[in-house]
């Protein structure tokens, strides 16, 4: 297992180099000039050229790439053109809201969706099953921002139970933090609840017809244990796969949700950086996200082998 994790970590190196190259090239090849944006509308050509020289944008592209990767290896992500801060500081500032939102979403989704899926599978074909699956289709098809504005309208505007925007750091107290995170978490988790519940149901349906489920019943085991002890663990591999994919896809949802609720997280930062052609920030965010993807994949593979002793690497 240890050797496997080490091998997988080594294998991420070429992946990250490729991602870095793409991130770098993609932005250089877009027809826009950050120097002009920074200089503003009234700048002269000399001023723009000066800024360009200062940022190193007048060097040939490959020189720029090597300077940039060299700095990366020393942990230097450069300085934001637009925010006038180092990128590392900027990301450190913005990472907590996103992390909190993502974690709350995933935890909520798993806690709600897995039992729902198990119940639906157990009551396969009943009205409860059909109702749950009906809701899950709805959950898939309604866009995140529509769900967000609906929740805002009901809970923030009409009922006035929860704040409509912003984020409170966990360090400033749990209460205010929780108040601010509830609506965004609900918004974002709907689609994942739908996804994970469907997968759980499908996977459980398959497993429930297996012989060892019958064996468990023949032992006199109670139904709850038959479902959760014997069936669910066997059904878990596809469910974990979907959860892993879900976390990866979460990033897109985070961008929208953070915009709806004006949360100063990485999603908002990404949008702002893209609009400002803030290359160093965009590149750092892309790299960060791809590291997260790779780590999630690794975690999923490790969880597989924990869940199923037949899977060995």
């Amino acid at each position: 297992m240890f050797a496997f994790i080490l091998r997988r970590l080594l294998a991420t190196i070429p992946v990250l180099i490729t991602v870095a190259l793409f991130a770098f090239l993609l932005l250089r090849l877009t027809p826009s000039d950050p120097a002009a944006i920074i200089a503003g509308d009234t700048a002269t050509a000399e001023q723009v050229a000066g800024i360009r020289a200062k940022l190193g944008l007048d060097e040939p592209i490959y020189t720029q790439f090597f300077i940039w990767t060299g700095k990366l290896l020393h942990g230097d992500f450069g300085e934001s053109f637009y925010f006038k801060k180092t990128v590392a500081e900027l990301i450190a500032d913005r990472v907590e809201p996103t992390l909190a939102l993502a974690l709350c979403t995933i935890v909520l989704a798993i806690l709600v969706a897995v039992p729902l899926g198990v119940i639906a599978a157990r009551l396969h074909g009943s009205w409860i099953d059909r109702l749950m699956m009906g809701f899950s289709v709805l959950g898939f098809s309604v866009p995140v921002f529509v769900i967000g504005y609906c929740l805002l309208y009901v809970f923030a505007r009409e009922l006035r139970w929860l704040p409509s925007n912003g984020y409170n750091r966990l360090a400033d107290g749990f209460g205010p933090w929780a108040q601010h995170i509830i609506l965004p978490t609900l918004t974002l988790s709907v689609v994942y609840i739908a996804l994970i519940a469907r997968m759980t149901r499908a996977s459980m349906l398959e497993v429930l017809s297996e012989d060892y489920v019958r064996t468990a019943r023949a032992k006199g085991q109670i139904e709850r244990r038959v479902l959760f002890r014997h069936a669910l663990r066997n059904a878990a591999v596809p469910i974990v796969t979907v959860i892993g994919l879900g976390i990866a896809l979460l990033i897109g949802g985070v961008v929208v949700t953070e915009s709806v609720y004006s949360i100063p997280g990485l999603g908002r930062l990404t949008v702002e950086a893209v609009l400002a052609r803030d290359f160093p920030v965009i590149q750092a965010v892309i790299l960060l996200f791809s590291v997260v993807y790779v780590m999630i994949n690794l975690a999923v593979d490790v969880i597989y082998s924990v869940l199923d002793p037949r899977i060995r690497y």
Binding site: D211, Y212, R214, T215, G220, H230
Partner: peptide
């Protein structure tokens, strides 16, 4: 009441020992 009987007073052995045992336990 049947659950208390199954496994204790009447037990069963199935055809496929591969699939009749839970593979992850």
């Amino acid at each position: 009441e049947m659950r208390a009987v199954r496994g204790k007073r009447v037990a069963m052995v199935f055809q496929e020992p591969m699939t009749a045992l839970n593979p992850v336990e």
